[in-house]
């Protein structure tokens, strides 16, 4: 059997799709969960800001593999039984949320307070101000590090192989065992990751350009 036999190609395609899928799911959780954490970080009430700060520091200080081990292997001892993909996506999402919270916070902080005062003077409510003034104003600052973080999550998703999620890295290992070619399957995997990362980076840059162009 050679590496390019149809069955291996099919395996690689399936594994690549799983990698993209778990990354997308983890990214979605990170994007959604990051926002309330960012708002809590910015809160004047310490009951909100202190736990949020602890959460962010925990997620940014810990390696993803340890978080995954805690959820996947440690979870059952507290009654949390998740299958590997679910644990992996949850871990990736919780981990990413810590980073996105900081990205959102920095973006929101950069919106000049006067722009919010102007909106308040015109009778806009808090939710309206958040949706129509603060978030769009912060977007310019959120987009570049946000793209970088999405790329990080894509690369970190390889760690899910350690808890047996059948994504690209895990599959490369299995193919290596079958073909007795230790390195080549991983090189193929690396190439696929690299292509996905480049695509994400280009998409992010294009979005930045469009955003800049719309305001110029």
């Amino acid at each position: 059997m050679t590496l390019l036999s149809p069955e291996f190609v099919a395996l690689f395609i399936r594994a690549f799709a799983i990698t993209l899928g778990v990354t997308a799911a983890g990214l979605a959780i990170a994007l959604l969960l990051g926002l309330p954490v960012a708002l809590a970080l910015r809160s004047r009430r310490t009951v909100l800001s202190v736990p949020a700060r602890l959460y962010v520091e925990l997620m940014r200080g810990a390696p993803l593999v340890i978080l995954l081990f805690l959820v996947y292997y440690g979870g059952p001892s507290v009654g949390l039984l998740l299958d590997a993909p679910t644990a992996g996506i949850a871990g990736l999402g919780l981990y990413g949320a810590g980073y996105f919270a900081e990205i959102y916070r920095a973006g929101l902080n950069a919106v000049p307070p006067g722009e919010i005062e102007a909106a308040r003077m015109l009778g806009l409510g808090r939710t309206q101000i958040f949706l129509h003034i603060q978030m769009p104003g912060a977007l310019r600052l959120i987009l570049p590090p946000g793209t970088g973080q999405a790329i990080n999550l894509l690369k970190e998703s390889a760690v899910l192989s350690i808890i047996t999620v059948p994504e690209l890295t895990k599959t490369a290992g299995e193919i290596a065992n079958l073909t007795f070619s230790a390195v080549t399957p991983y090189l193929v995997a690396a190439l696929l990751y690299w292509a996905a990362v480049e695509t994400l980076a280009r998409t992010g840059r294009a979005a930045e350009r469009r955003l800049g162009a719309a305001q110029k």
């Binding site: 006067g114 005062e117 102007a118 909106a119 806009l124 769009p136 104003g137």
Partner: peptide, 29 residues
């Protein structure tokens, strides 16, 4: 509501056109 305010540093919203700056509150508020 009876008061309009103009600031030293304008505080226009940079992501909106001049017209959209003027109309946002009309639509939302």
């Amino acid at each position: 509501a009876p008061l309009g305010m103009v600031f030293q540093h304008f505080h226009l919203w940079p992501h909106l056109s001049a017209l959209a700056n003027v109309t946002l509150a009309l639509k939302l508020a």
